Amino acid sequence: MPIATRRFGRTDWTVSEIGFGAWAIGGSWGNVEEADARASLHAALDAGMTFIDTADVYGDGRSERIIREVLKERGGERVIVATKAGRRLDPHVAGGYTKANLEAFIDRSLGNLGVETLDLVQLHCPPTEVYYRPEVFEALDGFVAAGKIRHYGVSVEKVEEALKAIAFPNVVSVQIIHNLFRHRPAELFFPEAKRRGVAVIVRVPLASGLLTGRMNAATAFSADDHRQFNRHGEAFDVGETFAGVPYEVGLAAVEELRPLVPGGATMAQFALRWILMEEAVSVVIPGAKNRAQAEANAAASALAPLSPDVMDAARALYRERIAPYVHQRW
């Protein structure tokens, strides 16, 4: 069954409601062999995914280059490829978001992806202060006018940043964390994004794998996996790892969610279907490190809508078990 599609905000794009998150095939998720990375992306595209999300820092360009090579191999109608810019700054501070720096990052991504124009460039979780600097967005307007990028958006950590960003009229999309363990974006941001015609890209939909239901207290992660090295925010925002939920708390909550999973579906597919119940969501971008994971992600689109009772039960569990750890932080 083909993946359902949704309109991507006020652009003229229609994209698969489940896309391919390409962080894992770049790095920071343990070792992913090149052959597996390519196979996962091929499987996603074979299944009908038409939206790929990457960034210039994923494997220092490895993710972008793999995407370029796979798409070149396949030929045919090109899918939408979104990338990000900003995290190459060292130190990563608001003052670094200059026109010159952004142009250098964009030019590098153009080369990595082998294109003349980038479909979508997203500011990559910049410091909050960047959203109060109109000159940053004016620079992005200039890159659109110059033909280097078609559209631009932002990837944010906080709901407040998302609301501030969409006050800039040419921000076409916002990427944000939303999942069974992170409900807050639906309260205020989603209705406002929908009202303004802003596309919503949902990342970390499986809470770094917690919501696959395959982890336990004994699960081991390699030293180069952010689920090991960033558990307390040592390398970047802790909300990117297990959605900011303490690991043991998340494991216990997953066990309480299991009875809600529809027959014939996996926990991960249920978690993706839960996100897709929100009309404001344009595309959800789970990662995949191999062919089987990509195919299973795609299949979530075919699940029947969840019942009001199931949605209410999930909300109740969030309020009681998870919200105290995450709700007011992001």
Rank of each mutant, 00 (worst) to 15 (best):
R10P: 11
T11S: 11
T11V: 10
T11I: 05
S16T: 06
I25S: 04
S28I: 13
N31Y: 12
E33F: 11
R38P: 12
G48E: 05
I52L: 10
D53M: 03
G59V: 06
G61F: 04
I67P: 00
V70H: 01
E77V: 15
R78Y: 06
R78W: 03
V79F: 05
T83N: 00
G86S: 03
L89R: 00
D90V: 09
V93I: 15
F105H: 04
F105D: 13
I106P: 04
N112P: 05
N112W: 03
Q122T: 07
Q122S: 13
E135V: 09
V154D: 02
V156E: 04
K164T: 14
P169Y: 11
V171F: 03
V174D: 03
L180K: 03
F189E: 02
E192L: 13
R195A: 15
G197R: 00
G197C: 10
V200K: 02
I201L: 14
V202W: 00
R203Y: 11
V204M: 04
L206W: 06
A207C: 11
G209D: 07
F221V: 06
D225R: 00
H226R: 02
A243C: 14
Y247R: 09
A252Q: 13
E255L: 12
P259M: 11
P262S: 08
G263Y: 05
Q293D: 10
A294C: 12
A294R: 01
A302R: 01
L303P: 02
A304N: 09
P305V: 06
P308R: 00
D312A: 15
A314R: 01
R315D: 14
L317R: 02
R319E: 14
Q328W: 14
R329M: 12
W330N: 13
W330L: 13
